[in-house]
Design a protein around this nucleic acid. Structure first.
Length: 312
DNA sequence: AAGACGAAAGTGGTTGA
DNA sequence: TCAACAACTTTCGTCTT
């Protein structure tokens, strides 16, 4: 039932963003996403990973060794304590159990150390991958940091194991884009990934769920200017298309719909109105959806917003 | 002939019993 | 875990310009 989806999403939207996405910035000092309007912490899960780490940037690579090393300093101490304890005053039985306890702790520490360093290795590899993708996609470099933050959390939760690093990295980038309201579709990002769209989408949903991220709804108006530019349409068309989308949103026609499809339809209408007609096929291609979707959204918008088109 | 339209069947994901 | 469901895609036949 369309009505339900709408109510649900609208509610989520209101709860999710008391502050609009464009005001959300990453505070490096504290490792939190905060809103510059209200000062509230938006992305709480960004800090639950412990005091040691910060956002990763390539320049920090050298300093990063600090993260893994403290554990290794601990190890020799345990060796000393163990021998002292065994040497002096205890019955053989007690000694045995105590030694066993120590050995147990040691083993746990070693396991921890091993996974810690392997995560570091993995994250470094991911940094290369993410940088590569962000550059290939022409995204702002700040997305690298955002994506790394997300990726690191995923890695520390063991979400990367058994999945391709590349796909998880791509998913992190997509998530970062969504958080920032940058209009990139999953398909565009998946184009550069071997695993393909399916896998990236799977990883993305996993990230959302496991890291408890709350995504702002993708805003169709953000897709408009890209499409308008690609088609060489005038700013008038862009303005009108955005008007249509805002109207549509008010009427609740946008919930659960592909934002690119909505943007495409709005542009199609605006272009018709302003005598800058483009074919559905052209617009569909520029928006990355099919003609059918453009058509369906177009019909819906015209009907529900009671837009009357000039006779051709 | 190209574009617009719409029906039908298939895909991949969500949701609720 | 499974079925119902919504949105989107692919494909294709039929009007319209």
């Amino acid at each position: 039932m369309a009505e339900h989806t709408y109510e649900f999403e609208e509610e989520q939207h209101e709860k999710g963003s008391t502050c609009p996405p464009e005001y959300i910035v990453f505070d490096e000092e504290r490792g939190e996403y905060i809103c510059t309007l209200t000062g509230e912490v938006v992305e709480e899960s960004a800090i639950d990973t412990g005091p040691e780490w910060r956002a990763y940037t390539p320049e920090e690579k050298t300093r990063r060794s600090r993260v893994g090393s403290p554990l290794s300093h601990v190890l020799p101490d345990y060796g000393v304590l163990t021998t002292m304890g065994t040497y002096r005053d205890a019955t053989g039985r007690k000694l045995e159990s105590r030694a066993r306890l120590e050995a147990e702790r040691l083993r746990r520490l070693q396991a921890k150390l091993r996974t810690a360093t392997s995560i570091e290795k993995n994250v470094e590899q991911a940094a290369r991958e993410i940088t590569r993708l962000v550059e290939a996609l022409g995204l702002p470099r700040s997305i690298i940091d955002d994506a790394m933050l997300i990726y690191r959390q995923a890695a520390e939760k063991g979400l990367v194991r058994g999945r391709s690093l590349e796909s998880v990295a791509a998913a992190a980038i997509y998530a970062a884009c969504r958080l920032r309201g940058i209009p990139k579709t999953l398909d565009e990002i998946a184009e550069y990934v071997k695993g393909g769209r399916k896998e990236v989408a799977r990883c993305y949903r996993l990230l959302i769920r496991e890291l408890k991220m709350r995504m702002p709804l993708a805003d169709p108006t953000r897709f408009v200017s890209r499409i308008v530019t690609a088609l060489g349409l005038s700013p008038k068309v862009e303005k009108r298309a955005i008007e249509i989308l805002i109207q549509a949103r008010r009427k609740g026609l946008t919930a659960g719909k592909d934002p690119a499809g909505l943007a495409a339809a709005a542009i199609y209408i605006a272009a018709l109105e302003l005598n800058e007609r483009r074919t559905q096929k052209e617009i569909a291609r520029a928006a990355g959806v099919t003609e059918v979707t453009v058509r369906n959204r177009y019909k819906e918008l015209v009907q529900k917003l009671k837009i009357s088109l000039p006779a051709q």
